[in-house]
């Protein structure tokens, strides 16, 4: 991970908090899909938000994709916007698992549900561990046809300074399902998060 301001100890602390939050989200997802989810350690990286469109261009450019975005607000200046990116090919696998027809209108609803499970369970788990509590705005879904994901990402991320990329890969029992979660956060939130991490580290 880029060390943009994070010490090795802070990075380890954030990674562990994220692993625990991810475990909660996977458990919820497994229950929702009625299957077992192989959990992998998510890789995290803090980057400038302006780099986000370029970072994801290759993975999402030549494919139909969807972006689900949800704002979050907490105490101590912790706030931001969580976005989850899906390749529609991956989304179709989940639709099939849940018994939807591919291309069904409700597929978008399903994506909203899954994103909501992933982001709110994940962020609540994260907030609990840093003794914070978060509120959320309603999720917003943006679909992209081939080629316009980077402009969607540009429009979503341009007013934020930093982005915490969390690369999530779920292995379901008989299929793999990948998506990316990105937390867009303002500069002062990074400083606040560092302060909170230091407080946790002081306890140990």
């Amino acid at each position: 991970m880029s060390t943009l301001g994070f010490s090795e100890e802070q990075r380890d602390c954030l990674q562990e908090i994220i692993n625990v939050a991810m475990g909660l989200a996977s458990d919820k997802l497994a229950r929702f899909l009625n299957t077992f989810v192989h959990l992998q350690v998510p890789s995290i990286a803090l980057v400038g938000a302006s780099h986000i469109p370029a970072e994801f261009e290759n993975r999402y450019q030549d494919t139909e994709a969807a972006l689900v975005s949800q704002g979050f607000f907490g105490n101590e200046g912790v706030r931001g916007e969580a976005i989850v990116l899906y390749q529609m090919e991956n989304a179709h696998k989940i639709s099939a698992l849940l018994g939807y027809e591919v291309g069904d209108v409700s597929e978008i609803e399903m994506l909203t549900d899954i994103s909501s499970i992933l982001t709110t369970t994940f962020l609540n788990g994260l907030a609990d561990q840093i003794e914070n509590s978060l509120s959320y705005s309603a999720p917003r879904v943006l679909s992209s046809v081939k080629g316009d994901m980077s402009s969607l990402l540009r429009n979503t991320s341009f007013h934020w300074e930093h982005a915490l990329k969390v690369d999530i890969s779920y292995q379901l029992v008989d299929h793999s399902f990948n998506c990316d979660m990105i937390l867009l956060i303002p500069g002062e939130a990074v400083t606040n998060i560092q302060r909170i991490l230091d407080r946790i580290l002081e306890d140990y």
Binding site: V20, M22, G23, L24, A30, F36, L39, Q129
Partner: peptide
């Protein structure tokens, strides 16, 4: 473990662990 799925607990206990505790 951070992986708290019931099936994971079952697997772990079958492999002979004494207990399965959730993180943190």
């Amino acid at each position: 473990s951070a992986d708290i799925q019931p099936e994971m607990k079952k697997r772990v206990m079958e492999l002979g662990a004494l207990a399965f505790i959730h993180k943190p």
